[in-house]
Simulated assay, not measured.
Amino acid sequence: MKPTIINHPFHVIKLNYCSEGPLSTLEQEAITKYVELHNGSQSYKELLTRLHIYYTSTDIILLHCQITFNNLQNEYLLLTPMLHYLQEGGPLTDSEIASIDESERVCYDTQPLLTQLHSFNNKYDNYIEDLRVTEQEFATVEKQKEKLDQLFDVFEERYLFPIITDYKNRAIDFCPLQENFDDFRSAFSDLTDFADSLYDARATFLDQHILLHNKIVELDKDILSLFAAINGDAN
Rank of each mutant, 00 (worst) to 15 (best):
E29K: 15
T80I: 11
T68S: 13
T80H: 11
G40D: 13
L26C: 06
L23V: 05
F69Q: 03
L48K: 06
T58K: 09
A30D: 02
L83C: 15
G40N: 14
S19V: 00
L86T: 07
E88T: 12
Y34C: 05
L77A: 11
L83P: 15
T25D: 09
I60R: 00
E20C: 02
K33I: 01
Q66W: 02
N39A: 10
L62F: 01
K33L: 06
L23I: 02
Y55V: 06
P81L: 07
I53C: 05
P22N: 12
C65A: 09
P22M: 08
Q66N: 13
I61M: 03
L26S: 07
T49H: 12
L63V: 02
T68A: 07
F69E: 01
N74S: 14
T68M: 09
M82S: 14
Y54F: 15
S41D: 04
I53H: 08
E29Q: 14
E29M: 10
R50I: 02
H52F: 11
C18I: 00
E20K: 13
Y76E: 08
Y55R: 11
S57N: 12
E88Q: 15
Y17F: 15
A30Q: 01
Y85P: 03
C18K: 06
I61S: 05
T80A: 15
E88M: 13
T58S: 15
Y44D: 11
H64T: 03
Y54N: 00
Q87G: 14
Y76Q: 06
Y55T: 07
L78Q: 13
L37Q: 10
T25P: 02
T80Q: 15
H38N: 10
T25G: 04
S43I: 02
L86P: 11
N70M: 04
Q87K: 15
E36G: 14
T56C: 05
S43V: 00
Y34P: 06
L78A: 05
H64F: 02
H38W: 03
I61T: 03
K45M: 05
D59F: 00
H84L: 12
Y85V: 00
E27F: 07
I53M: 01
P81F: 05
Y54Q: 00
N74W: 00
S41E: 06
Y54H: 06
T80K: 15
H52E: 05
L78T: 04
P81A: 12
S43D: 08
T56Q: 12
P81H: 10
Y17P: 00
L77K: 14
T80M: 13
L72Q: 08
Q73R: 15
T32C: 10
E46C: 02
S43E: 07
L23G: 02
L51S: 10
I67D: 06
I61Q: 03
P22F: 07
L26N: 06
Y54S: 00
P81G: 10
T32S: 13
S19W: 04
Y85G: 01
K45Q: 13
